[in-house]
Design a protein around this nucleic acid. Structure first.
Length: 1188
RNA sequence: GCCUUGGUGGCGGAACUGGUAGACGCGCUGGAUUCAAAAUCCAGUUCUUUCGGGAGUGUGGGUUCGAUUCCCACCCAAGGUACCA
């Protein structure tokens, strides 16, 4: 038999499989089904590198194994072919993304075909194919037509919601909807205009339009992701970025928050991935609590024993009055103070009376209101009382003007008394005041329960509410500007500005720096009514919860640190707990104290009690909070799915399913338009003819259709040039945004089940046969993107009754990344290297080289240093890769000035075993061609070596470093070259052999020779059997080796431990070779065992064993225990747990016999050296341990 | 900071539920074969040693007859992230 000619073998079987449709999956079968799926790739221009196939090989091994096990296996592959790189390339080159994508796919396909995957290529899907994205658009429409009914806990058709509205309004509807949804009755609803109804419904639909804040970069005309922004400017180009509201499509994934969480318990996914999703959804149970913000100065009205903490500002907002005109408040306050000190007798009398009277409301005296100082004021009732002297007649005009202004413009009620009235008839005056107070409603005034501002917080520990000693708002919180007192304004503004420059990640990671600023404002404790100072601090993030915290320093370490830092009191509300050193956060052992009605309660009881109390006083309620936000679904890009949406009168309309797909229009250029519209704004044929249901030219859209004036009557329109009539009613603008990357991947796994169906996304038969994915393999980078959104869509599809399972993948595995090895050497950054006395053909001359010099150095330990530094005094140095020669270089004539040494990354294709192929590398770039390459023995220049030190190496050494494999790092290893040199089977085995599937591991091509020679040995083992000869009967050893292997390989595959089964194969072949096994009864099952891993050689060997059918569905060998039964065991004999020698003993020996045999052994005596063992542990069949 | 994963020879890694640490492969060393090289085959390869042995799985403790494996504390690396109230 000839040598192992893998090229011929692999080519032959790849053709055979394609020709015979070996891996075609049928949608009807008596066999049990198995659906194995790899995450489909984005076809990038760089092609596959060796990291990509890792997961595909694993899925392929499992698929092939399942075929051997008698399953009908679905193992499809496709392309996630919409995406940014193709669009970016299009922007740069003008090449249509569809063309780029097509070319890239072609290359991917060639590479994939060479690896011998058992894909059913008939089922290939491409997300950018209109026949595919027709169904992406279809799902979008289904979502639009649905709402989430919390009562039934599932999505329902919007028509059920409309019929409820018609009958009873939305009072009793429990749905996931916008926060600002108004409540209305059935009558209201039925009276609404069609547009109004549409607006309301949009607040309920599972996909809806909403104003979302985005990072807008005006210079790039595009929206940027958080990580595309560095230090407040765009990563690309460094342009300024602003927060801007944009109307965008959103997906109401929040409706599914709880079910997405619950579903995690049902599926076998890696725990870290589940953790990531759990954290992303971020469920926390607690309560919302509303705190009223006290008007300025209110806190001064409390009794003098107030718990007010010292505040950094002197006076802490004393005498400030919210009602005063801020531009002249200083003057007003001064005067008010003056006047309060020196009241007129009448004023004093009335003031004492008002205080004594103990009215329900509170009065202030000499209070600034706008430009004036009024005598008495009741803020909650907006009542002003003025006490005048009669002789003020000359002022009458002015007073009238003042009254007019206060009453009419500011909404106060002003009553006037004369001094006489007050002095002589106080009773009547008071009576009149009481009457007027009664008649006034507690309207939009200040004070009482009608505070102008309220702070809502979410807390998981409402039970600790009596421990609140301050509040912290996020610096971005909208109330900050409104409540900050004038005294604190400058400081607060500076802090807000400083915070804006910090990234959230930065704010989050820095726990050491405690910072914050007092706003000067106070909130009122809902129970104790004590004032609570309001601070801002950057440890509170605006994006989470309400952006405000009720700080309980005794129960939360962050609050504790903050309070300590700013000398804020730390009241202890825990029984028997010392909080002098740190906060106490343990819920389990909590007993509440100093908390009024909560005293003595445990955490659990206190939680219940406080929530009911909060609800009773209307200051809060129990709440489950989720971090998860609705997903923005619009992208301002070209290369994505168009929305099946047009706009009539500003309201979105869905294109009827019958007319899908709505195909992506052609555009001149792929950039945003000059007016900042998305790239589709460049399309000239992008309007919807709603009468004929087709896309038509933009010119036909009337302005009226956009602006809502189009009555469709052909009447002259005022905004159009004279007399022009609207001729093209029913033609409307189409949506200009496209869908995001995850749209196409959120149901592709179901589409594979029936990918050519143009009538439905899949047939009921197909989905009912295949049900769900049994094994899904892909990278963990998709944990919170694809893998969460696709679960959401699946649950929606389940609610709609389209799919039978609400989780689409039972088992998921994250394959680890294959990291690359980059090769570095140092490079001196110089302007020009000049070498005098350089020897050329014409004799000696000066030589100028390009500005690059490479060098490395070994330190004392022989390790390669990444950097070297020679000190500033050495200006002219010829760099050496060998440190010891430095001085000689320095003194010699070969010298160049340098500024700096930086690491230089070499293309790994020119480095082998850390040695650079200088000649090859020079050709890659002009400046490399003209560089000096310094080595221990001298230097290379122009392809010539100049020897400076004889006997020293001429090789240029590099040092390796492990990094992510990426084109930009020049460390990409392609599978093509490896297939060419070693074959696909070798590559497949090697990728598995590298290490555990789920861990990341570095690639090193050199190691592939090991698995390659294994395949050669395997081939050799079968040589004697050529021609289908029967071979000889298997020996006991043969059978033992085989069945040991069957057992291990089967276990390994089931556990996805593919690396160890490759080792097992090697051991097996080594043993069978040593046994000189030629038995067909052994080698036939072995071929099947190997077939999932190395399918080409397995098919070839199978055929040579005399089979005419493919090995693909040959039954997996059955493991039989009987061949492994042993009669004796080589016992490890340990002393104090350390193995000292081995002793072969029969397995049927019992404990005592073993002990006796061991103790009698001479080596035991030797070890014991006369001591008597204290104890002897015997585990039959395992180990003997002697203690003593 | 927090979450997750990991840390074992020169390298990738193995060791099932606590029972022989370093399987298998790469690399390296020596040998065979060869005119020579490649390929192939054989032997060796954790460190240390006075050749008896001794030490050893990131560090320090603990549990146990026995720990890479279990517990506690810490260090380092990679990935994720939200100071989540």
């Amino acid at each position: 038999m000839m040598n192992y000619d893998f090229r011929q073998i692999e080519d032959k079987w790849q053709k055979y499989w394609a020709k015979n449709n070996t891996f075609k999956a049928s949608n009807t079968s008596d066999k049990p089904k198995f659906y194995a799926l790899s995450m489909f790739p984005y076809p990038s221009g760089a092609g596959l590198h060796v990291g990509h196939p890792l997961g595909y090989i694993a899925t392929d091994i499992y698929s092939r194994y399942k075929r051997h096990k008698g399953f009908n296996v679905l193992h499809p592959m496709g392309y996630d072919s919409f995406g940014l790189p193709a669009e970016q390339y299009a922007i740069q080159t003008g090449q249509h993304p569809a063309i780029t994508t097509e070319n890239n796919i072609k290359r991917y396909r060639e590479q994939l075909d060479k690896l011998g995957f058992s894909f059913d290529w008939d089922r290939e899907v491409r997300t950018s194919n209109p026949r595919y994205y027709k169904w992406t658009q279809w799902i979008f429409i289904q979502l639009f037509n649905s709402w989430y009914n919390k009562k039934s806990d599932k999505a329902e058709n919007i028509s059920t919601l409309i019929s409820i509205f018609e009958k009873e309004g939305n009072e009793n509807v429990e749905a996931t909807c916008d926060d600002d949804t108004p409540s209305f009755s059935a009558a209201d609803w039925n009276g609404f205009s069609e547009k109004k109804k549409q607006e309301i419904l949009l607040k309920y639909r599972l996909t809806y339009l909403a104003d979302t804040e985005v990072n807008w970069c005006p210079a790039l005309g595009t929206v940027l992701a958080n990580d595309e922004i560095v230090n407040g400017v765009s990563e690309r180009g460094g342009h300024p970025v602003i927060r801007k509201k944009m109307t965008q499509w959103s997906m109401r994934i929040t409706a599914y928050a709880q079910r997405l969480l619950d579903g995690l318990d049902k599926i076998d996914w890696p725990q870290p991935l589940k953790d990531a999703q759990t954290n992303w959804i971020g469920r926390s149970v607690g309560a919302t609590v509303t705190f009223n913000v006290l008007p300025f100065g209110e806190e001064q009205g409390g009794d003098s024993n107030s718990v007010l903490p010292p505040t950094p500002s002197s006076g802490g907002g004393a005498n400030a009055r919210l009602t005063g005109d801020s531009s002249m408040i200083g003057v007003l306050l001064e005067r008010a103070k003056e006047m309060r000190k020196n009241p007129t007798p009448a004023e004093d009398k009335l003031w004492q009376a008002l205080r004594r009277k103990n009215l329900d409301v509170k009065f202030r005296r000499q209070h600034p209101v706008y430009k004036y100082i009024v005598d008495f004021i009741c803020l909650e009732k907006k009542l002003i009382i003025e006490v005048d002297e009669k002789i003020h007649d000359y002022q009458l005009d002015k007073d009238a003007q003042r009254t007019l202004e206060l009453e009419q413009k500011k909404g106060f009620t002003v009553i006037r008394f004369t001094n006489d009235e007050v002095i002589s008839n106080l009773e009547a005056v008071i009576k009149k005041i009481e009457d007027i107070l009664d008649s006034l409603s507690t309207g939009e005034g200040w004070g009482g329960d009608n505070h102008p501002y309220q702070i809502e917080v979410f807390t998981t520990r409402p039970d600790t509410i009596f421990g609140v000693s301050f509040m912290t708002l996020a610096p971005e919180h909208e109330l900050v500007a409104k409540i900050t007192t004038p005294e604190q304004k400058a400081e607060v503004e500076a802090y807000v500005e400083a915070t804006a420059k910090r990234s959230e990640r930065d704010r989050m990671a820095d726990v050491k720096t405690i910072s914050g600023v007092f706003t000067g404002a106070y909130a009122e404790h809902p129970f104790t009514k004590e004032p609570i100072p309001i601070w801002i601090g950057d440890y509170v993030l605006a994006s989470y919860g309400t952006g405000a915290v009720m700080a309980v320093p005794c129960g939360d370490q962050r609050d504790y640190d903050f309070a300590k830092h700013y000398n804020i009191p730390i009241p202890n509300i825990f029984e028997g707990v010392d909080i002098s050193e740190e906060a106490f956060a343990d819920k389990e052992t909590t007993v509440i104290a100093n908390s009024d009605f909560l005293n003595g309660l445990s955490y659990k009881d206190a939680m219940k009690k406080i929530i009911s109390e909060l609800e009773r006083i209307g200051h809060g309620k129990g709440k489950v909070n989720y971090r998860l936000r609705d997903a923005v679904f619009s992208r301002q890009r070209y290369w994505g799915e168009p929305f099946p949406v047009y706009y009539v009168d500003g309201m979105p309309q869905m294109i009827d399913e019958k007319y899908l797909p709505l195909e992506l229009p052609e555009v001149e250029k792929y950039l945003p338009t000059e007016t900042g519209e998305p790239p589709l704004g460049n399309a000239t044929t992008w309007a919807w003819d709603a009468k004929n249901n087709k896309v038509v030219s933009n010119d036909l859209v009337t302005l009226s259709a956009v602006e809502g004036l189009d009555k469709g009557d052909g009447m002259p329109k005022p905004h159009l040039p004279d007399g022009q009539k609207v001729q093209h009613d029913g033609i409307y603008p189409l949506e200009l945004n496209t869908m995001p990357g995850w749209a196409g991947s959120s149901q592709y796994f179901n589409r594979y089940m029936d990918p050519r169906n143009d009538e439905a996304i899949f047939s009921p038969e197909a989905i009912n046969y295949w049900q769900d994915v049994d094994l899904y393999i892909g990278g963990s980078e998709h944990a919170t993107g694809h893998l969460l959104y696709s679960r959401f869509w699946q649950k929606f599809m389940f609610d709609m009754g389209y799919v039978p399972k609400d989780e689409y993948a039972q088992k998921l595995i994250n394959q680890g990344m294959i990291t690359g090895t980059s090769e570095f050497a140092n490079q001196a950054s110089v302007n020009q290297a000049y070498i005098s006395g350089y020897k050329t053909e014409g004799g000696f001359e000066g030589k100028r080289a390009s500005n690059i010099i490479f060098l490395i150095k070994e330190n004392e330990n022989g390790e390669l240093d990444k950097f070297q530094y020679y000190g500033d005094d050495v200006k002219y140095v010829f760099f050496s890769s060998d440190y010891e020669y430095l001085d000689e270089y320095k003194e010699g004539e070969y010298a160049v000035p340098y500024n700096q040494v930086i690491p230089h990354r070499f293309d790994v294709n020119y480095v082998e075993n850390n040695i650079l192929d200088i000649e090859g590398y020079r050709k890659t770039n002009e400046s490399y061609n003209d560089s000096i390459y310094v080595v221990p023995g001298g230097f290379w220049l122009d392809g010539k070596f100049t020897e400076l030190f004889s006997g020293k190496s001429r090789e240029f050494k590099t040092y390796p470093e492990v990094e992510k494999m990426s084109k930009s790092k020049y460390n990409v290893v392609n599978p093509d070259a490896i297939c060419e040199e070693y074959g696909a089977d070798s590559l497949r085995l090697y990728e598995m052999f590298l290490g555990p599937l789920e861990q990341s591991k570095p690639w090193n091509t050199a190691g592939i020779t090991g698995v390659h020679s294994f395949l050669k040995k395997l081939w050799k083992l079968y040589s004697p059997l050529e021609g289908g000869e029967g071979g000889v009967a298997p020996t006991a050893d043969n059978l033992k080796t085989l069945h040991k292997t069957i057992k291990k390989v089967e276990e390994d595959i089931e556990n996805f431990s593919f690396n160890t089964s490759v080792s097992t194969f090697m051991i097996c072949v080594n043993e069978l070779t040593a046994q000189k096994c030629t038995s067909k009864a052994i080698l036939e099952p072995l071929a099947i065992l190997v077939s999932p891993y190395a399918p080409h050689i397995a098919e070839e060997l199978w055929e040579r064993l005399g089979h005419s059918e493919s090995i693909a569905e040959a039954p997996f060998p059955k493991f039989e225990e009987k061949y492994l039964v042993e009669s004796s065991k080589e016992y490890p004999i340990s002393f104090n747990g350390k193995m000292r020698f081995k002793l072969e003993l029969p397995l049927d020996m019992d404990k005592d016999e073993i002990e006796a045999a061991v103790l009698a052994h001479e080596k035991t005596q030797e070890q014991l050296q006369g001591r008597t063992p204290k104890k002897v542990i015997v585990v039959p069949g395992k180990i003997v341990n002697i203690v003593g």
